[in-house]
Design a protein around this nucleic acid. Sequence first.
DNA 1: GAAAAGTAGTTGTAGAGTACATCTATCAAG
DNA 2: CTTGATAGATGTACTCTACAACTACTTTTC
Lengths: 167, 167
Amino acid sequence: MTGSTSASGADTGVRETDAAAGDAGVREAAVATIQRELTAFARRARAAAARMHPELSLVSFTLLAHLEDSGGCRATDLATYYLLDKSTVSRQVAALERAGHVERRSDPADHRIQLLHLTAQGEQVLAQAADRRSQAFHARLSDWDPAELSRFAAYLTRYNDEAADPA
Amino acid sequence: MTGSTSASGADTGVRETDAAAGDAGVREAAVATIQRELTAFARRARAAAARMHPELSLVSFTLLAHLEDSGGCRATDLATYYLLDKSTVSRQVAALERAGHVERRSDPADHRIQLLHLTAQGEQVLAQAADRRSQAFHARLSDWDPAELSRFAAYLTRYNDEAADPA
DNA sequence: GAAAAGTAGTTGTAGAGTACATCTATCAAG
DNA sequence: CTTGATAGATGTACTCTACAACTACTTTTC
């Protein structure tokens, strides 16, 4: 609904004639749409996750997923990556440990550091939630063709990487 | 960092030779990347908003923006759109009203309904926050060309519209 | 090599956002 | 007029979060 106005302006077939005049407007409209749609997605993500996998909140899921992706990292890394305060991460990690999903390993070279790892149980719970998420995403994207999916994926990756860099 | 592995697989230049064999894999990888990147964005959005415009949380911002976009709507509409409980919206709206950002208008035809509208002050605060957001988005997207932006915007719109439909 | 500065993480405290259950008020059928 | 649906508010309780202050350890500096 909300998106239709700007979306039509952000159509794939961009008028290439007199590009100089149109570019600024096209850019403006497209950025506005990107902003609006990304924000709407973000706003829904928490609730959507709660419905998809009630046993693992969006927060817990992302932290566990990051641990799996990274093959173990420190609490500080999580805080940096997700723009969270370290106290928040500390509590989240404590809860995940209490639940038996993660394990701490001390670094003998630096006693301040605790490397966080998934436990077998954590891996299993994560896999289950990831599966539900994956199904939901595949369902939503079922009528996209592979080339579109690849481009969309590349755009998102590029966007996030650029957001991480200059901040 | 985390994204680099899958991102390379989701490159724009898709191998078109022996497409039948590659399609499933390409699709799988692309969907996984889309899921991961969208989720990462969602996880950062709240904190990013708090830094960009501390005077207006991500929640408040999205609700006000929706009111502006829609030109006034009911609390229930907000709840539906953002997958929120009506009690949550009720409290959020009450806070926004207390802050002088929104106004309620009773519908003479149906006394249960309250149409929510931005006040002049609400419009102003929203505009200010939107401006900061817009700047940040433009900065992150500054080296994208208009065609890419348009495609990205169209993809996001399509994704969100499809998410809204079948759920 | 001791003092100063920096880093990793925890804990106290407090506030925002949220859901679920329950309530009121209103409307719509039958 | 009763029954059922809808819009919204309130009671309650929990999670997520930040900021400030703390401990413990490491690195730098003079």
